[in-house]
Computed example of a mutant assay.
Amino acid sequence: MSKFPFYESLTEPLPPAHFSVLLKSLWYDAKGDWKTAHDLVDSLAGEEAAWVHAYLHRKEGDSWNADYWYARAKKVRPSHTLEEEWESLVMHFMA
């Protein structure tokens, strides 16, 4: 599935209603609203939510907290850029 509909939605004031909570979190992150992005995933359970949570703490610069969430997601902190990780997350959740 193409990521372009996701990118096109970034011109709108709100994320599309049909986006999952995880995609909405990534949408708010792309719009520069880290707090809303984090608030959306902060109380969610599951490995996928933990992966987005980890990414957000990595972006925040809180490596210890990010590593905690990566472990909950059964992943390790990636060595690629934040932009590449964000894109991987979007592609994963758009599929």
Rank of each mutant, 00 (worst) to 15 (best):
W51S: 11
S43T: 13
D62S: 04
K59T: 09
D42E: 14
L44W: 09
E60Q: 15
D42M: 13
R72E: 15
V52L: 07
H53D: 01
A71Q: 13
H57W: 04
Y55P: 02
R58V: 09
E48P: 01
D62V: 06
A73W: 14
D67V: 06
N65F: 04
W69I: 04
W64I: 05
A71M: 12
G46I: 12
A49N: 10
Y70R: 12
A50I: 10
Y68A: 00
Y68E: 06
S63H: 12
W64L: 02
R58N: 03
R58K: 06
A49T: 08
Y68N: 02
A45E: 14
Y55L: 08
G46Q: 14
E60S: 12
H57L: 08
E60R: 01
H53V: 07
H57Q: 03
D67R: 14
D62P: 00
Y70F: 14
Y68I: 05
A50H: 10
D42Q: 13
Y70I: 10
L44V: 11
W64N: 03
D62M: 07
W64A: 13
S43M: 05
H57C: 05
Y55T: 08
Y55D: 06
W51N: 03
W51E: 09
A54S: 08
G61C: 08
V52I: 08
A50G: 11
G46F: 12
H57R: 01
L56D: 03
W51M: 10
K59A: 15
S43K: 13
E48M: 11
